[in-house]
Design a protein around this nucleic acid. Structure first.
Lengths: 353, 353
DNA sequence: TCAAGTATTGCAATCGATTGCGCAAATGAG
DNA sequence: CTCATTTGCGCAATCGATTGCAATACTTGA
């Protein structure tokens, strides 16, 4: 592979001159600069960033750690963060920590070895696993920002959605519509005072006589079981709050297979406002946490730390407000009678006719 | 940041010894090796990969270029490729070329500057845009493999799905069910003899008296218009072959809004077998091109070239066979009469009752 | 014509690791 | 006890670029 010395030789100048010419330094005469640039172009020369990075002690690269890319929540986040980072002149190095998160520490270690200039770490539902590794990293001068809630005192800047308010909005939506028996479908709460469940319950309590039932579920099968359980109750809920749109999607599928119509018999609300929700049938009412804001806040916060590493103020916390998107999957409860449980005949899919 | 020299000094040995000890070289006595490793661990030392990469002339990194991450087709591909690469001891550097692909060349250039050991380039619907940049890269000794079809003579190894056969399977499925008026929804063909449309038409022609109509569409609005157009025809098609599952999803949404039931009035088939299809209502019949195979073939081919760069056999072409997944969105055409075009009243969503 | 000032360019150190080669110490054989 | 081996370790070169400083060439004004 061709290197700077080759270009310098061809142009009959020193490496220093070649380097400066390619960097458009005004200290090089215009003729030589153009000559060198032309030679470099013709030779197909591209600077060796690994050598350059070593010399300038910076990689102009940001590390991004996310749990998994297959969860439909993350791709857009990645895209947005990538856009912001590239817009600011940084490359992105993506690492998948895995949903089990055993490798969150490995990712951080890899990023440190690569000498990335900064790190954005998106926590999974388990919260921050590699707290120690992260603290050590910032101690070594690599700024980081957390995206998502972590329990305890966060060691670094962090931006996260106000899930509690989101849950509150959902609860009010339910009670405003007249629902009095509601179910919560999803993982156990993990976001402390900002958890969706916290706000949801707060919202429910503002209306007397509302009962709630929690059905933990993460996988398709668990959702299936959970829904069956709910439908089998004496007094099934008239509304379901799914912790995430993907869970809501599974729930809708199960309900449909059980011939329960949405929202007539059961209202369903999701969380995250994924595009997926608009493909569902009916389109999903959900809570939106502006991902654009999340992404740009995270990147900007990180870049801020990068610009002035001296600025050692305590970790900031940026909270993104939620917004309820009411679509088709919620309505007033049809009646107080229990849901018919006999399987419908014929096609198991929906139709308008 | 702490470096090798610091460790060496603390241990009272030379840098060479420290380096070899950390690399578990047998040429270092066990006592010293463990001493040095302990010191490094306690000091929180991590090797500087950028220095190391420069010295060993390899980054152990593969570049992956995809058009966009928000298209639900790509996340799983990325995940699978990442798994394969990491399993083989390589890191992954992800670049998004953008759907417009203006930046495909930029991505390649960036990867070259970073001195990645190899590149996997996933083409967009436009095919290979940066052909020149790619050829130059391989000329400079960076092996690459293309994922997806390109027109003309491919300059490098390539793996792609046999879309034509996929299209053929769909066509046969349609004609077997008794459909005689079918529509194709999607972009214009771009994969030459392997295009979905080619095989689809071949399949249709094996049954006499089948008419086809092509409706180009990429965006939501275009789908909307296309569907409206189809429904407005004297004799609307009884089956739609959408070029991708995402298009099929949009089409289903539009049909639903127009109160056309699937599959009774119109059958719909997608392509790609995304998870999305199983959330649709009804669940989508679609064509699967084993993404696992795609990913592992691509990575293995690349690694093969990496191991024996001397092996300069002409570019290989690996073709992945498709498989039809019949689900709920297809059935026999109900009748030969045209679809009722009066909007249905009441809720615009589906229900089983 | 000479001094002062400016515009260009090159020398050489540097970033942090790896590794071929040589030297010294330890071991073993005769 | 001496010489040949083996074992353990360090010297110094190297990867490819950047950059402070010194050096040279070229202007300009007096």
């Amino acid at each position: 592979m061709i290197k700077l010395a080759d270009i310098a030789e061809q142009a009959g100048v020193s490496e220093s001159t070649a380097s400066r010419a390619l960097a458009n330094s005004p200290r090089i005469s215009a003729v030589k600069r153009e000559l060198i640039q032309r030679i470099a172009l013709e030779a197909g020369y591209t600077v060796n960033q690994v050598a350059r990075n070593l010399r300038v002690q910076s990689t102009k690269t940001l590390g991004l750690v996310i749990p998994e890319i297959t969860n439909p929540f993350f791709p857009r986040l990645v895209q947005l963060i990538a856009d912001s980072a590239i817009g600011a002149g940084y490359r992105l190095q993506l690492h998948l920590s895995g949903v089990s998160q055993e490798s969150e520490g490995d990712c951080l270690a890899a990023l440190r070895e690569q000498r990335v200039d900064g790190v954005i770490l998106v926590t999974s539902e388990n919260g921050l696993v590699a707290r120690e590794a992260l603290s050590q990293m910032v101690a070594f001068g690599v700024p980081a920002v957390l995206l998502g809630w972590v329990s305890g005192e966060p060691p670094v800047d962090m931006v996260f959605g106000n899930d509690a308010t989101g849950g509150y909005l959902v609860a009010k939506h339910f009670t405003d519509l007249g629902h009095r028996r509601v179910a919560i479908l999803g993982a156990v709460p993990h976001r402390g005072p900002f958890d969706r469940l916290v706000g949801f319950r707060k919202g429910l309590m503002e209306t007397p006589g509302v009962t709630e039932i929690v059905v933990p579920a993460r996988t398709n099968e668990e959702v299936r079981l959970g829904i069956d359980h709910l439908l089998g109750l004496d007094k099934p809920p008239t509304a379901i709050f799914a912790y995430q749109d993907s869970l809501a999607a599974m729930a809708c599928r199960c309900l449909r297979q059980s011939c329960v119509s949405i929202p007539e018999e059961i209202s369903v609300v999701g969380f995250d406002n994924l595009e997926l929700g608009t493909y569902l049938c009916p389109q999903l009412t959900t809570v939106d946490l502006s991902m654009e804001q999340m992404a740009s806040c995270a990147v900007e916060t990180l870049l801020g730390r990068l610009k002035t590493p001296s600025f050692r103020g305590g970790p900031n916390q940026i909270v993104i407000p939620p917004q309820l998107f009411v679509r088709e999957s919620t309505s007033r409860p049809r009646s107080t009678q229990s849901i018919k449980k006999t399987p419908c005949e014929g096609a198991s899919h929906c139709a308008c006719d």
